[in-house]
Amino acid sequence: MFTLSSTLLIFVLLGHTLSAPTFLYIRDAQPSDNDLFASCPGGPGSKNVERADKCTLINIVNNPDTHLQYNVGNVQGNCEGGTNPVSLTVGGESTTETTTTASADLGIDFAGISIGGGIESEKSTSSTKSNSTSITVNPGRQAVMTMSVLAHSQSGNVQVNYGDRVDGHFIWFTGTVITQTIPTDEITFDVHETKCGTDPLDFTNTS
């Protein structure tokens, strides 16, 4: 049998239970790196976010310089079974351009996407060079002109700026690191000669 004091105690306990606060943990939405890169100027765009005003390389790390190898013009050969050397002209033109790669497979084609802030933003991203020369090619040999271009390389994350808030923020940063390889004007031309019947465009071919 309940007493008056027991009834009051039950109401007090129920009151504490009903008034206990409820905590809701809500995680902010966040665009993916695919969305961020795609929204950069020159990118294909993303249905999930608006177009970015600009994209900038940050946390820049300067990588060692490298040399980019290009074939220039068509292969010329003395491969018709003759027994005499022939004089041939090798050369033509080839285009060098800045390339961008990502540390993760995002399925993004970076060609045309504008990301400033590094060396790439200080010079043209594309340049066409031409050269030719006459050479003597012995029987059973073929040749092609090659071009070696000194290139600088930088890596970093990308800061993406929007004119309006995207998921609550005007600025987002990619977790993915990109690497930009930027050709210079320091170019060396040479002639790569190989045995007929082998791949003349393979720079490792020393036949």
Rank of each mutant, 00 (worst) to 15 (best):
F2N: 09
T3D: 05
L4V: 14
I10S: 05
V12D: 02
L13W: 05
L18C: 13
S19M: 10
F23E: 12
Y25P: 02
Q30M: 10
S32C: 00
F37N: 08
C40G: 06
P41K: 04
P41M: 07
G45S: 01
K47W: 13
E50S: 13
R51I: 04
A52G: 05
C55D: 03
N62R: 13
D65C: 01
D65Y: 06
H67R: 14
G73C: 04
N74K: 15
N78K: 01
G82I: 11
T83M: 09
N84L: 14
N84D: 09
S87V: 14
V90M: 04
G91E: 01
E93V: 01
S94Y: 00
S94A: 15
T96V: 10
T96C: 03
A102C: 15
A102F: 08
S103C: 02
A104G: 05
L106C: 03
S114T: 08
E120C: 05
S121C: 03
E122D: 12
K123N: 07
T125G: 15
S126R: 11
S126D: 00
K129M: 13
S130M: 03
S132P: 03
S134V: 15
V144I: 14
M145R: 03
T146L: 03
V149F: 04
S155Q: 08
G156Q: 06
V158L: 06
Q159E: 13
Q159D: 06
V160P: 04
R165H: 13
V166H: 01
D167A: 12
D167K: 12
G168D: 09
G168L: 10
I171V: 15
I171M: 11
W172N: 01
W172Y: 04
E186L: 11
E186D: 13
I187V: 15
H192L: 00
E193Q: 12
E193M: 10
L201W: 04
N205G: 02
N205M: 03
T206I: 11
T206M: 10
S207W: 08
